[in-house]
Design a protein around this nucleic acid. Structure first.
Lengths: 106, 106
DNA sequence: AATATTGTTCGTACATTTGCGAACTACGAA
DNA sequence: TTCGTAGTTCGCAAATGTACGAACAATATT
């Protein structure tokens, strides 16, 4: 296996793992649909404890998909647009470049 | 949250979870680059025990991303092209439709 | 029939993930 | 300074995931 593929695999796996939970997908979808919002807004639409929400947010942040900044007593979260685009590209290439060889895409 | 989104989130999460390990991404990449191959071919390029390889393959199969059929003493694996395309569509829509609202895609 | 080949399944050990309440931190308001 | 608000972190329990060798099953070969 080529070395560059291994690194790409690891990055793709990290991103996928971050997206590997329904709650985290929901959070991403929620955040991606707006410019930004506070922790409370996210917690409000989810049926889980705030500690758990916070945990999921840390996971998404660690993967680079979102970012958060403290604002007064609140915390504002938003999609990390740059990494989002990179992830988009990685997934697209993964699904399409791969399949190109066996003509799955047409 | 809309009900249809919840189901989509769950499907996307299931697919992501299946892709959430470097070895499984490598397996998918390996399989996607060819029409099909045997278990042994996959095991050969991976530095892990065959029991573990088999486990990862079951995970990918459970997610619907690959399929396998017995052929003599060997087992032939390949990408599940139909689900592959569906996954491709889901990820693309997730990353792009979401971002369309906030003009991240341009 | 006995043996070899190819994978799967089982049992086990250890690590990670998930979810929660409680305790904590940091800040603004009274 | 005391109190309230908004989140994070801690500590725990239960569930899942990861990896392996050993045992097993199914077929092909001798």
């Amino acid at each position: 296996m080529k070395k560059e593929s291994i690194e790409q695999d690891q990055l793709l796996a990290r991103l996928s793992k971050a997206m590997g939970h329904p709650t985290r997908v929901a959070i991403l979808r929620f955040l991606a649909a707006q410019e930004s919002c506070f922790f409370g807004d996210i917690h409000e639409v989810l049926p889980i404890a705030k500690a758990t929400v916070s945990q999921h947010l840390q996971a998404l942040k660690a993967a680079g998909l979102i970012q958060g900044e403290i604002e007064a007593p609140k915390v504002r979260y938003c999609i990390n647009r740059e990494n989002w685009r990179q992830a988009q590209k990685l997934f697209t290439e993964f699904f399409c470049d791969c399949t190109a060889k066996t003509s799955c895409c047409e």
